[in-house]
């Protein structure tokens, strides 16, 4: 899991997190044990649907302001470390 999230932990941290994750999994097991035969599956907890907006252009941000947030920028673009592998 830490590998997927590209995170590094010490052994002590891993011990602590393993305990926390076990609690989360225990909760999931509790939920799975419930009898939900009468319930209809829903995609979203809120009873909302079809929230859309019209296809109208709104102003974008100022580029200098945007790039000022980046650690490094070059030629109007974000400069990032060399990307190994490929886009998924």
């Amino acid at each position: 899991m830490a590998g997927l999230a590209r995170l590094r932990f010490t052994d002590d941290e891993l011990d602590e997190l393993t305990g926390q994750l076990a609690a989360v999994l225990g909760h999931a097991a509790d939920v799975e044990a419930l009898d939900i035969a009468d319930l209809v599956a829903r995609v979203h907890p809120m009873g909302l649907g079809d929230v859309t907006r019209p296809d109208e252009v709104r102003p974008s941000l100022d580029r200098d302001q945007v790039l000022a947030q980046a650690p490094v920028a070059e030629s109007g673009r974000f400069r990032v470390p060399p990307v190994l592998g490929e886009a998924p």
Binding site: T52, R53, P54, S75, G76
Partner: peptide, 30 residues
Amino acid sequence: GCANRFGDEPNTNVCPVCLGLPGSLPVVNA
């Protein structure tokens, strides 16, 4: 609401939503 346009100057059609800034929320284009 950023413009969907090919060939514009880099990073001129960006906003908090498409930059993934905290607190921004997506709304679907009808």
